[in-house]
Amino acid sequence: MAKGRPHQMASSGITARGIGMTFSRRGASTTVLESLDLDIAAGSFVTLLGPSGCGKSTLLKILGGILQPTEGSVHIGESTAADAVARKDIGLVLQRPALLPWKTARENVAMLRDLAKKGTRGDGAADRALELVGLTHAADRLPHELSGGMAQRVSIARALAMDPEILLMDEPFGALDAITRDAMNETLAGIWAATGKTIVFVTHSISEAVFLSDTIHVMASDPGRIVEEVTIALDRPRRAEVLDTSEFLTYSTHLREQLVGPEARV
């Protein structure tokens, strides 16, 4: 959409105020998120980092307007999250690939794009998205013929093909080997730099978070909340070599201490 105009696209920021989420079932209720505030600047790359079960996926779905919080509200730019959904501004990569088993990789990638009425049918956007994730050779395969990591990359391509203003990604590289993961990180950073999308990224991996983010929101569980906001001031574009710098190490160490908690620091 806005290729070659880095960071000038009319991307929207996300504002979440007083988010609370309580799941109740047969009388028993669990509070997963409590009075959570979040500000995500337009065009920034933001990561949610936290232990398993702290509510990252739940928060991401709420930010994307597909899960209604029990408390609080989400605004995307000037409008509500629901309006942003109606405008098809949000691209989602969920934790599980969720592909249609009877459609090929290419058809799966094209499906949401077609439904969102972005571009015209068969304009090659699906193939370009598959190329970005390195799956051109697998375009005609069915989901059961793909490995877990390949299926996950198809689901990333599906979101990219939508060319949304806001990209919400839930552990998109969780099932990839280290080498492919590093390559995908660089690809994603490149896409972000070229398009100026707002990206919210969920991960368990500290180094992935530091490598990609402008801002990292560290979460804690019971109830899920944001305990710290860390701004990563490393120069861009970042290359794999940045992983070995002392600044990078400083960030990683700090984040690890945050996640492990003060009692483990001795």
């Binding site: 779905k61 994307g64 307007g65 597909i66 899960l67 959904v85 109606a86 098809k88 949000i90 691209g91 989602l92 969920l94 934790q95 599980r96 969720a98 249609l100 949401l112 439904l115 969102a116 599906r158 939508m162």
Partner: peptide, 17 residues
């Protein structure tokens, strides 16, 4: 698949779609 339903919702699909 619940996640497929969410993805369909995320592009504003109708119940009939």
């Amino acid at each position: 698949d619940e996640d497929l339903l969410l993805l369909m919702k995320s592009v504003g699909s109708t119940r009939n779609q």
